[in-house]
């Protein structure tokens, strides 16, 4: 009897130990990122202090005030417009990529056609072309079309960056849904189009949400192409705006950390909101087939 209790307690202890270990590990993993976040709330002197000051001794919002132009000596950085540009570009391109990805994923999951495997692989491989290899040709073509330094120009690029992976995930997800469901609906008088929206789309929602998060994070954080294709406040995004803190001779670490927080927070909120779908969506998407 007591042996059973003992083994139960020892199991509990073990489990608690494991949980503690997991939390400890995750916190350690986050330390570099947390350092940046903490540094956003301290004066420059404390960031450069030797020995290091871990927890801000004099927490301050000065760094944020400065980049919004409320400080004394620094010219404002147009964070507001960068933020709006980033948001518009990332959201629009994510939505378009999802629409295109759903059409494509549905085609791959539900139809047999010639060259299927080749087209699928081709889409993936074109995504593997490194951004630096594309940057100049895209720039020259975009400038001929007059869409340099516009949100549209960047949206087009991001859509194509995200389409292949989106198709991949959504394809896998549609395959999980038994064909019989949609067929039954069609027997009941639905068109294929209606059957898709009533039956298959709701079931695939988690997978679509997962694809959406990945697409959003890619567009939100992309730098190499955005730094080439944007110039002014009409299209510059937040990651490109980070460079505003590096002049030829100085880097403003405190300001950069504050900006980093502004970049991270929306991504964090979004991920937290759809986190449940993310795991569920990835579970089936893409693997089976």
């Amino acid at each position: 009897m007591s042996a059973v209790v003992e083994s139960q307690t020892s199991k509990q202890v073990k489990r608690a130990g494991l949980t503690a270990l997991a939390f400890l590990l995750m916190v350690v993993m986050c330390v570099p990122g947390l350092w940046v976040v903490l540094s956003a709330f301290r004066p420059n002197g404390e960031i450069l202090a030797k020995p290091p000051v871990w927890v801000p001794e004099n927490p301050t919002f000065d760094n944020f005030r400065k980049i919004f132009g409320l400080g004394t000596d620094q010219v404002a950085i147009p964070v507001g417009s960068y933020f709006m540009n980033s948001l518009i570009i990332a959201l629009t391109s994510t939505l378009i990529a999802l629409a295109i990805g759903m059409a494509g994923g549905y085609a791959f999951a539900r139809y047999r056609f010639r060259g299927k495997g080749g087209i699928f692989l081709g889409l993936m491989l074109f995504r593997a072309v490194p951004g630096i290899a594309l940057s100049l040709p895209v720039f020259i073509i975009w400038s001929k079309l007059g869409i340099i330094d516009t949100k549209l120009g960047l949206i087009i690029v991001y859509v194509s960056l995200n389409v292949p992976f989106t198709i991949w995930l959504i394809d896998g997800f549609f395959r999980q849904i038994p064909l019989s469901l949609s067929e039954a609906a069609q027997v009941d008088g639905c068109t294929r189009w209606q059957a898709f929206w009533k039956i298959e789309f709701p079931l695939a929602r988690s997978g679509i949400a997962a694809a959406g998060v990945f697409a959003f994070l890619t567009s939100w954080n992309e730098f190499a192409l955005a730094s080439q294709l944007t110039r002014s406040t009409t299209s510059k995004t937040l990651p490109v705006g980070l460079l505003d803190f590096t002049a030829q001779f100085t880097i403003d670490w405190a300001g950069m950390c504050a900006m980093a927080v502004i970049i991270i927070v929306p991504a964090l909120i979004l991920t937290f909101l759809v986190q449940k779908h993310l795991i569920a969506g990835l579970t089936f998407g893409g693997v089976k087939g």
Partner: peptide, 8 residues
């Protein structure tokens, strides 16, 4: 860490 832009 996935929230962090590579440049960041």
């Amino acid at each position: 860490p996935m929230m962090f832009s590579p440049i960041l």
